[in-house]
Simulated scan of single mutants.
Amino acid sequence: MLPEAAAGQLVRICDAGAGAPVVLAVPYAGGSAQSFFAWKPLLDGQLTLLALELPGRGRCYGQPMPASLLALADGLAQTLATEGVQPDLLFGHSLGALIAFELLRAMRRRGRSLPAAALMSGRIAPSHPRTFGLPRFGREYLVEYLRDLGGTPDSVLNNDAVIDMMLPVLQQDLELIAGYDYAPAAPLDIDLTAAGGFDDGRVPLSGLLGWHEECTGRYALHMHPGGHFFVETERTAMAALLCELAARGPRAKAA
């Protein structure tokens, strides 16, 4: 049994065997580890992909969400320590990028080795206003928010039963962002790549460039066609980027 401080669960999406780079992926608001199974055909044999299942959904249904994003990150760091997982690359999209950032900080506080690199996708830098682009809470506003983001099919948005299941988790996730307080600290000693969509009005270029302040290693910016969910519409390009970045990790270099 995991210690009380642990949070979430690791889900193995694909396994490329000993010596292959290990990527840890964190889902976006309202999402789950399940969404990363669509990436498996693009990554099989090239890297091992682990996805974090966050509390309250999927395999962690019923597990309470920690009171804050910082508490969640600390609990996820405990989960990695308990499982003995040392990723070469951390990847998060939208809320997942913010969680990944604070997870890296939590790992550093615990004295754990950090991944060589991180890919922060579809999220403004944490030093920027946290509530930028967030909707008002309430069913009508959250459904319109999902519609505006463009990642949810109309068949879902028009299905009241499905929406009733989705919205509590989405609102819980968005409340994590709204309650997040960024604390300035020393930059992370890693390489960091930011990725964005050309048509994503909720994540301006200035917000992506702000990630440069959070690392001492190499910083790069990759822009892709599409809106907020370019991470799915441009999945092939994003998978290739994951493979490229993960291959720079120490495990891959030693193989």
Rank of each mutant, 00 (worst) to 15 (best):
L2R: 13
A6W: 03
V11R: 12
I13M: 01
D15C: 06
P21K: 01
V26Q: 02
V26T: 11
Y28M: 05
S32L: 06
S35C: 11
W39E: 03
K40L: 12
L49R: 08
L49T: 11
L50A: 03
A51L: 13
L52T: 13
L52M: 14
G58Q: 08
C60D: 08
Q63L: 07
P64V: 10
P66W: 03
L69I: 08
A71C: 06
A73T: 03
A73Q: 03
D74I: 01
G75A: 09
G75M: 06
A77L: 07
T79C: 10
T82W: 14
V85P: 07
Q86Y: 00
L90D: 00
F91V: 15
G92I: 03
L95I: 03
G96Q: 07
L98M: 13
L103T: 05
P115F: 05
I124Q: 11
I124D: 10
A125W: 07
S127E: 14
H128T: 14
G133L: 02
L142Q: 10
L149P: 10
G151K: 00
L167W: 08
A178V: 02
D189A: 15
F198T: 12
C215Q: 03
G217L: 09
Y219Q: 09
A220E: 15
L221S: 07
P225Q: 13
A240P: 00
L242G: 00
L242R: 01
A247Y: 01
A252V: 00
